[in-house]
Computed example of a mutant assay.
Amino acid sequence: MKISHYFELEEHVTGGIRESVVHQRKMLDRLDVEYTTEPTLDADVFHCNLMGPRSVWYARRARSRGIPVVAHTHVTAEDFGDSFRFTNALARPLKPYLEWAYGLADALICPSEYNRRLIETYTDATTTVVSNGVDGEKLEGFEALEDEYRERYDLESPTVFLVGHVIKRKGLETFVELARRLPHLDFAWFGPLDLSLKGRETTRLIEESPDNCTFTGYVDDIRGAYAAGDIFCFPTHEENEGIALLEAMTAGKPILVRDIETFSWLDDGKDCLKVAASGSGVDAFADAIERLEDPDRRERLGSNAAERSEAFTLESVASQYQTLYDEVT
């Protein structure tokens, strides 16, 4: 079996989608599945990760030749808004386009149950939930970087942190306001800023953030973020899964999230703390962070989170790809 495992705009797209593709290819290597990263119809399955115009072109021709099409549903109109400049304006016309594009697939891969429920309002194509997974090897040895990264960004424990692109949808306003409410703690957001791509409101929030709120920009070794951070605070309003969250759990960090449907699989008080989704939730988030200043509570929640993350390792997820390819061919 040969897979055309195509990632349109691979040289330009970053963040969670890129990480997912990296994980997928590691899993295909683990399965010893033959694949090419080029779009081609000389394959048994055409698997695309981003339904851009070139992917759609190949998908339509693959179907006309009887080649099964598998597509990932990384992108939804719901999580496209409040990301980069102009994305809010594009979110509305994006949905009918995705309804049509995803409908070209014989099978859709959804990274979470929440994402699947959303996609089922787009198309009646067959859906399968397969986690993006977490690459534990990528994090190996992160503990050794603690002193270096705390010194580099002038951070003291316990540091409240987040990992990923700095975008409003991920709870930027809440994160900044929390830093303002809790001046005795350091807050650090590790990830690309790309201010030229941000809207005016996002730029203002970053530039007017308090002194105890650090935006590091691109980090050359992401292990340093998990070494320097103590409390993973993820006040996102919309998420398909959240690879950084899985990484933080694998690193044994206590997790604090907004109680949105995406995170319904997490147990509040056992492997995370949740804050009600209504409003900004700043007061409730602040209360939860103050509870997590207790090192024993951090240790307990972090240990439970690490144990829970074992179900998402690449080793655990890989076989689902083999099963799916076998089903569609």
Rank of each mutant, 00 (worst) to 15 (best):
I67R: 02
P183T: 12
E146C: 09
R181N: 12
F175R: 03
S112C: 03
E140S: 14
D79N: 15
L118T: 14
H74A: 09
R181Q: 12
L182M: 04
R92K: 14
L108F: 06
C110Q: 07
Y122D: 04
E148Q: 13
T121R: 10
V134Q: 04
S64E: 15
T174C: 05
E140A: 13
R116P: 10
A91M: 05
V70T: 01
S64V: 12
E78K: 11
F80Q: 14
T121W: 01
S83N: 13
L104F: 05
K168L: 14
T127I: 05
F142T: 05
G171L: 03
D147P: 03
N88M: 09
R169C: 02
T127V: 07
V134F: 10
A91W: 08
F142Q: 12
L172I: 10
L98C: 01
R116V: 10
L182Y: 03
K138W: 09
K138I: 07
L104C: 00
P111Y: 04
I167N: 03
E173M: 09
E151G: 11
D124M: 05
I119P: 04
D82H: 13
N132M: 14
Y122E: 06
F161A: 02
I119C: 01
L90N: 09
G133N: 01
H74V: 07
L139I: 09
W100S: 00
P183L: 09
R180Y: 02
T127L: 13
R150K: 15
E120K: 12
L108I: 13
W100I: 01
R116D: 02
S157L: 10
